[in-house]
């Protein structure tokens, strides 16, 4: 599935509150029928939004994955087969044939906004 972003068709959505996402973990939100994984990387003071689906076996589980770093790169590991994806650009770090989409994310007044 090719996901093309064009500024004309994306909108900022109110996704959830900051408290909905565990520190140094993730959770899934439903935005206009799409499953988006939100990660609160509090150790790095960064937030990330990606597809919730792992492209390997098409499972909706990435938000339940363990996040961490490889060198400087923030990443998430799929619980199923441990494919790991960069949270910055969505590239798969241990199998280059896969990648996931990432989304702009912002925190304002305790609310998490995602541009989808």
């Amino acid at each position: 599935m090719e996901v093309l972003h064009s500024t004309t068709t994306t909108t900022w959505h109110q996704a959830c509150t900051v408290e909905d996402i565990p520190a140094d973990g993730g959770a899934c939100v439903l935005i206009e029928g799409r499953q988006i994984a939100i990660f609160n990387f509090s150790r790095r003071n960064e937030w990330f939004a990606t597809d919730n689906q792992c492209p390997h076996r098409h499972q909706m589980v990435l938000s339940r994955g363990i996040i961490g770093s490889q060198g400087e790169e923030p990443k998430v590991a799929c619980p199923f087969h441990k494919k790991t994806f960069s949270l910055r650009d969505g590239s798969c770090l241990n199998d280059e044939q896969y990648s996931i989409a990432t989304y702009p994310i912002e925190i304002r007044g305790g609310v998490v906004y995602v541009e989808v």
Binding site: D24, R43, R44, I66, G68
Partner: peptide
């Protein structure tokens, strides 16, 4: 806690190997 352990003994932000 994990963060205490990482701060005391480790470096970086952890990963799916060391966390569990």
């Amino acid at each position: 806690t994990y963060n205490e352990v990482l701060n005391h003994l480790g470096k970086g932000d952890g990963c799916e190997t060391c966390k569990p």
